[in-house]
Design a protein around this nucleic acid. Structure first.
Lengths: 288, 288
DNA sequence: TTGCGTGTGAACTTCCTGTGACCAGACAGG
DNA sequence: CCTGTCTGGTCACAGGAAGTTCACACGCAA
């Protein structure tokens, strides 16, 4: 994944993924307009979806949108009430009206009903997109919370809202940095080189020979192991870096059995087989 | 920071601070434009102030504005950097550019730098005001919602309508800022980073090294503790920020019992377990 | 086998956070 | 207009938790 991230924020929390992606629904009928707009949106990496007909508030909610672009001309006389209804019901949604020539009164009316911006066609697609982004940006400041969904891997649950990971409800007591690294790793399905990890967490280039990442991985593994002994999460790729993937622990059981007989389930299916190829048998060194 | 508050605080309780009023600064030089705009703004009951010259971020902060209307033409070439600087430093301020004819590239640039809207002169004053209001409205949504319902956590009751918190009916005598912070914290059940708190309370970006939030949290804890000793409300997440969650105080009871035998209920259920998962035991540093 | 790269444990440093004191501007009264 | 209080905000200090560096052991790769 490109993992764009235009941010230059060196500070903590830098680990957040591309949650900033624009999710847009478009209610318009001009094919040419849609086409040129699509091109720009694709280039931007935005997710968008054309709507054939006005969708009710509930439907819009289900789409988890950031913004709605609408041409009032498509709606006809009912457009105003639709606009009002949507704006009232989804105050967190950025609503941008982009329609043909209009009177000041109409524009005023639209804005008063709750639209965030009114752009007159014909317009330059780039500008329109900027307007949409500006609106979304503004809205986003208010709605940060929803951006942080917690996720689970194997037995652990990662909670960005608490800066913490849990196993069966109990905290792993991760420190801020430990959490950031775990969060970063768990968010990528591939091997991350040390330099990459360092750069994204610390915000600047890793000095040659710096072992910080190793040390943190060790601490992480330690905490993960003691909380979830039967799973291994962080795998070492010799000469490369680390990869996150929940897997049932040591099948070979080189562990002196200390009571609880490891539920040896050779070749047992992964409880949370993480989709595709994130489980290639890599010569995994020590893990956790 | 000049804490200046020109507010028209009516009474001591200073319930709602005229938050709903538009507070606008205008950086423009067209007398005719200013005059016609003034008329509309007066009719609207808005507070506004013309600026003779670009005012630094700190100056703008001191004015406690909702919005800034600026004509890039009066700034000349430095306008762009000024715009960028202001938008970066005051993320909560709605910035509307209203200037003469411009190219798409210029408008795009302005919006990308953080402007919320770009209106081209000549324009209808009513429409301009609607655009300003739309921009401000978005920002305001974040703070408006809870301004009404009072809520309780543990032993304290938070009353937005009185700008005060109570325990068993007696006021905590919180100052305005203390209350705002408590209100903000109690309103979100997740860890809030200091920068986040600062930005939402003070309205602009926190300077590096600013300890204000810490100090206020300390004052809050002090008052909370003396009014509700057996509960801890504000938890520190080292290296991250603070989180609000009512919890029974020190279970370990390292306190020499001083009379009232604490209803020791080891592992007892929280009296007011606030719904879902906001009560996971997180490695809480010092609390209150 | 040799040579690195990595795991480990512990010592060492840095910087984070809690606190108490202090300073300056804003109000309220006289 | 002057003065006493109060609130918001800044400092400097201290204790500690977290982060970084080291030296050594172990294992994989050639």
């Amino acid at each position: 994944m490109s993992s764009e991230r235009s941010e230059t924020l060196p500070g903590p929390g830098a680990a957040q993924r591309g949650q900033n992606r624009l999710r847009l629904a478009i209610l318009d009928r001009d094919p040419g307009f849609m086409q040129v707009l699509s091109k720009r949106l694709d280039a931007l990496g935005a997710e968008y979806r054309p709507l054939a007909a006005p969708l009710g508030a509930d439907g819009l909610v289900a789409m988890r949108l950031n913004a709605l672009l609408v041409d009032l001309a498509v709606l006809g006389p009912t457009g105003w009430s639709y606009l009002e209804q949507v704006c009232a019901r989804l105050p967190g949604l950025a609503v941008i009206v982009c329609t043909g020539p209009s009177s000041v009164a109409q524009r005023v009316r639209g804005l008063r009903l709750g639209a965030d911006a009114w752009v007159t066609k014909p317009c330059h697609p780039e500008e329109l997109i900027c307007v949409i982004e500006a609106s979304v940006r503004r809205h986003r400041r208010a709605e940060m919370p929803a951006l942080e969904a917690s996720s689970s891997f194997g037995e652990i649950t990662i909670r960005p809202d608490l800066y913490q990971a849990h196993v069966h409800g109990v905290s792993l007591e991760l420190t801020a940095r430990e959490f950031e690294i775990l969060h970063l790793l768990s968010g990528s399905d591939r091997v991350l080189r040390r330099e990459e990890i360092y750069e994204r967490i610390w915000g600047y280039a890793m000095a040659h020979g710096d072992r910080s990442v190793d040390v943190f991985v060790r601490k992480l593994r330690q905490k993960l192991r003691s909380a979830s002994p039967e799973w291994s999460y962080i795998h070492t790729h010799f000469g490369v870096g680390y990869r996150f993937a929940p897997e049932r622990a040591g099948a070979g059981a080189d562990e002196p059995v200390d009571g609880a007989p490891v539920l040896t389930d050779p070749a047992g299916e992964l409880v949370v087989a993480p989709a595709d190829g994130r489980s290639q048998p890599v010569h995994t060194g020590v893990t956790a």
